[in-house]
């Protein structure tokens, strides 16, 4: 199949940036989206041109490195997958595909489709420690965890920190990411001692990074490759209110 790519090219954070058009023939519909970009880059290198910079690592949907906005949808048009799990059979022959980086003040463009997502790391870092007994290994099941809480904590912990929620949000808010990180500890007994102070400090860091605020659109949960629910945002709102007003 043949496709037309409109790719965002930007040399560095200070560069203005622009779209460049590439007509890509010989695309196999069994190729993953990133393999298609690899083929594009090979031909660019052969022509002596600068290849398109994009991030990827595991290429199996678990590392969160490969995000980009594909024709207006973070990680492309399919639900619950990352860009590397998207295949060219999801597009039609002759289709024009627009590729843009995550766009947010808190995610400065490093080059082309690569953005710096360190702001998410700073939110996690400000979560601090959890108080656990160290020393000899604890007995299995010494701490009882209700099944439903274990499931919900696991769902929250499925967040791979790709940033699609920020990219999709009309306010470029990182609330879904932060709520997932706060919830996966906040739902477990091991996370209880610092539960509320953790919510307060992570939200304070989130607010300082230049993200927008949450207007409850729900675009984030639609874009999330791990289908994390905005129910966690409601839980974060509750934990923040309790934490801030109780002086945690």
């Amino acid at each position: 199949m043949k496709i037309t790519l409109q790719v965002w090219r930007q040399a560095n954070a200070n560069d203005e940036g622009r779209f460049e058009t590439y007509h890509q023939g010989g695309v196999n519909e069994e190729m993953s989206f990133l393999e298609m970009l690899d083929v594009l880059n090979e031909s660019l290198i052969n022509e002596g041109k600068e290849p398109v910079a994009f991030e990827s690592d595991c290429r199996e949907g678990i590392c969160g490195a490969c995000g980009m906005v594909i024709s207006g949808s973070p990680h492309g048009p399919k639900k619950a997958i990352t860009t590397c799990q998207l295949h060219m059979r999801s597009f039609s022959d002759g289709e024009e595909i627009w590729l843009e980086p995550w766009r947010a003040k808190a995610f400065p463009v490093v080059k082309d489709l690569v953005v710096d997502r360190s702001s998410l790391d700073r939110i996690v870092e400000s979560g601090g420690f959890i108080s656990v007994r160290t020393g000899s290994a604890p007995d299995a099941n010494a701490i009882a965890v209700p099944k439903s809480n274990a499931d919900r904590a696991f769902d929250a912990a499925a967040c791979i920190g790709c940033g699609a929620c920020v990219a999709a949000c009309p306010n470029a808010s990182a609330m879904l990411f932060t709520s997932a990180k706060v919830a996966h500890l906040g739902l477990l007994p091991q996370g209880q001692p610092e539960r509320f102070s953790r919510a307060v400090s992570m939200v304070a860091t989130m607010d300082q990074q230049g993200f927008g605020y949450c207007t409850n659109h729900g675009a984030c949960q639609t874009a999330c490759p791990k289908e994390i629910s905005i129910d966690l945002i409601a839980m974060l709102n509750r934990d923040l209110a309790i934490g801030a007003l109780s002086g945690a």
Binding site: G17, A104, A219
Partner: peptide, 24 residues
């Protein structure tokens, strides 16, 4: 004001994953 500065450069292809007119 906080949201206004959060995305200085918008998308060429509008991202509309929101669930309706009312939230926009």
């Amino acid at each position: 004001a906080m949201a206004g500065g959060a995305r200085p450069k918008g998308y060429k292809q509008a991202v509309h994953l929101e669930d309706g007119v009312s939230s926009r």
